[in-house]
Design a protein around this nucleic acid. Structure first.
Length: 229
DNA sequence: GACCAGGCACATC
DNA sequence: GATGTGCATGGT
């Protein structure tokens, strides 16, 4: 436990030294940050940037404008971010929540109890654990450690937790190893994404398995024993 | 052409 | 609670 804590802290120091402060989240305003959180779900950030630019050009890079667009129009604008029909539904549900529940009053949200708010946000269609924690940390400044695919991959490879560890398990391990400091949680997650993008590619699912070599995988119709007509 | 990218909801077991 | 599947674009 003690060694794990030291390792987590040392990894942070080394990443900060190597990459420098990341100044996250990369958004111009609060609404754009929320929209970016939804659009970046399982998408490359470069594609999200295209979608955000298109929204800005259309004057719809804020929650009220986005919500007021017809679905087909919004979907067309966010098309480069992928899953555009799905993300249209999610974006509208999320926008509706912030508008109707909070009137987009983020200062008021910052006065809420963070863990009660976390539960509430998890009930919003389109927001899973990572997106909710991004809202809590990057939008509202609460000290919640964001876990993503990079964090799970890097953490598992460094023995911080088992491969296949759950989101909550990974979050607990990072949060208990570090001082409860939103600024550091912010920086650490951003650094993990930075190093993950460039130096921590996923392992092949099953090394040597013929199912991973689709290019050479035989057509079942050509296999011996297949009834050819 | 395959794989990957800052997930999530839903069905099923 | 764990696992599988559909959702889609653009870069490598």
């Amino acid at each position: 436990m003690r060694g794990k804590r030291t390792l987590i802290r040392r990894i942070y120091e080394q990443l900060l030294k190597a990459y420098g402060p990341q100044h996250w989240w990369p958004a111009e305003g609060e609404d754009e940050l929320i929209i970016g959180i939804v659009l970046t779900q399982n998408a490359a950030w470069s594609n999200v940037e295209r979608a955000l630019s298109r929204l800005k050009e259309a004057g719809a890079c804020d929650l009220r404008s986005a919500l007021s667009l017809p679905d087909a129009r919004l979907a067309e604008l966010i098309r480069p971010a992928g899953y555009f029909n799905l993300k249209t539904r999610r974006l509208k549900a999320v926008a509706r929540y912030f508008i109707e529940r909070w009137d987009c009053d983020y200062a008021s949200m910052r006065r809420a109890d963070p863990m009660e708010l976390r539960e509430e946000l998890l009930g919003v269609y389109g927001l899973g654990r990572e997106s909710v924690d991004c809202v809590l940390l990057y939008l509202l400044g609460f000290p919640v450690f964001v876990i993503d695919a990079y964090t799970l991959r890097i953490g598992a490879r460094h023995g911080l937790f088992a491969e296949g560890a759950s989101y909550e398990e990974a979050r607990r391990i990072f949060e208990s190893a570090l001082p409860c400091d939103a600024a550091q949680f912010n920086e650490y997650h951003a650094l993990l994404v930075q190093v993950g993008k460039h130096q921590c590619k996923p392992k092949p699912r099953c090394e040597g398995c013929p199912l991973n070599q689709r290019r050479n995988f035989p057509d079942p119709a050509a296999l011996p024993g297949h009834n050819q007509r």
